[in-house]
Design a protein around this nucleic acid. Structure first.
Lengths: 113, 113
DNA sequence: ACTATATTCAGCCACATGGTTGAATATCCC
DNA sequence: GGGATATTCAACCATGTGGCTGAATATAGT
């Protein structure tokens, strides 16, 4: 019953505004670790940890060229997370539809019990 | 520049498969805390903490009737998270489109610098 | 070889998280 | 009132997270 461990990592990676900001930068274009760190008032080491977190979640791919680490967005996990959300919105839509149905036919309540 | 604090809570709440499982149950119908806890091998107190986490993230609304706490899904934060993801997929799509454009016209690279 | 640059590593700290247990609270029922 | 039921609270523990600093590593440029 243990769900894909990946999804935990993806959602937890998204649960921090610094990392979401980095993803925003990466959505525009490839960035180095230093460029990703620059907007934040934290140390480079801390920012580097955030990049690693994104990497562990599969959201970022890294290419080392010389001393510089180039990062690019890998959108697959985002799509996966989005797919999960969409599925639940679908279930919830069905629930709303059932509710509407119930309101139209008030005798028939709780028909899926 | 501090982003909506709510989004942190939503994504972090989603970053645990127990809580995602509870949301799945709630997508079907309203459940009590005990019902939500039942599928898991953890103590009721622990499950209760998960419910509270979902509640703090705004994903669950609770109604107390007598000694029983009824929980229902509140989909707005899910929609918000989904909206965030969709926005980033849009940016990434634009990036892909720009890449394609670049491949068609190889002279014009990095035109948004 | 030396110095500057890009980045990670290791150790530390404070706080959050996810689990436990045992007691408290509130309600329902006889 | 008294006992069973539903749930939370409080204290505790282990581990994770997000920040720091200072040292290490690797590369680039002179």
């Amino acid at each position: 019953m243990v769900e894909y461990p990946r999804l935990d990592l993806v959602f937890r990676a998204l649960g921090d505004s610094t990392r979401r900001g980095m993803l925003r930068q990466l959505a525009v274009r490839e960035r180095t670790v230093g460029e990703l760190a620059e907007p934040y008032r934290m140390s480079l080491a801390s920012a580097s940890k955030h990049v690693k977190t994104l990497e562990r979640a599969g959201l970022v791919k890294r290419t080392v060229r010389g001393r510089t680490h180039f990062c690019r967005l890998n959108p697959q996990p985002l799509a996966k997370a989005d797919g999960w959300l969409r599925e639940y919105e679908r279930l919830w839509d069905i629930r709303l539809a059932r509710l509407e149905e119930m309101l139209r036919h008030p005798d028939n309540e709780d028909s899926d019990r």
